[in-house]
Design a protein around this nucleic acid. Structure first.
Lengths: 133, 133
DNA sequence: ATAATAATGCAACATTGTTGCATTATTATA
DNA sequence: TATAATAATGCAACAATGTTGCATTATTAT
């Protein structure tokens, strides 16, 4: 926790620790609303600034779901920063409970597009999750 | 154009026609800001309502890009409504010009997740587009 | 041409995210 | 461990984005 912040060369503060704690005890990705609920009392501006920093430092990654709110989830250990994520997982959005899961897949599909240089591929699946079936 | 609106059983109005015209002459997906620029003078509320309706009716689909604004693009002919899209294309986001392309792929990857019922798969690639290379 | 119905446009509001700045906390150094 | 340098926090104010209610106007079915 503190080790993570130290490795990213950013200051260790109570607020940042509590944000990390929230994500650590959670298996699914969180919306900002959910984070706010977990926090109890807090300053909205500090929250936004913290989330922005965590995204820039590769601590959290953002998942944009069409027709829903943005979700955030912890990055893998080896994400250097915002533009160098290294995850081989896909994002699953449940239409019933609307939870978003980060799920590992063995074989991550290769996408080849003539004329385009593909740097990263993000896969989102929609359907019914394990708990809702 | 008018045929499309008629087939969706919604009224044919000047505003809706002009929105469809903007999308027809465009090859890439559009942000709301870009639509507004194309429109010239317009009512913001009517625009939001029109876009919402078009999404519900399966005329437009929404592309949510992490760290960027939502984009909209025309659906394929056979999209019935919001929850029944039938496209075999992927969305490509250029890191240089930040355009979003809808690109067809021959082989659309199958995603299997134990315990999860996958209904739809959305693939987003990031990199450098044809024009920017 | 007319009645029924839906779309538009305005005002007002709600939500989401940002900037500047004074205060407070963290960190590096002596 | 005390102090200076520096970064984070929290407040106010603002900016951007999206929504609701309602009167007016346009479209459609007859």
């Amino acid at each position: 926790m503190e080790k993570l912040l130290r490795s990213k060369k950013i200051r260790i503060t109570d607020f940042r620790i509590s944000i990390l704690n929230i994500f650590n005890k959670q298996s699914t990705a969180l919306s900002i609303e959910e984070i706010e609920t977990e926090l109890g009392q807090f300053d909205r501006i500090t929250l936004y600034r913290t989330l922005k920093l965590f995204k820039e430092k590769g601590i959290l990654h953002e998942i944009a779901i069409a027709g829903s709110n943005v979700r955030l989830a912890l990055c893998e250990q080896n994400c250097e920063d915002l533009h160098h994520h290294h995850h081989n997982h896909i994002h699953f959005h449940c239409v019933l409970c609307s939870e978003v899961y980060c799920l590992d897949v063995e074989t991550y599909p290769e996408i080849g597009l003539a004329g385009f240089e593909v740097q990263q591929v993000e896969i989102q699946a929609t359907g019914i999750c394990k708990s809702c079936r």
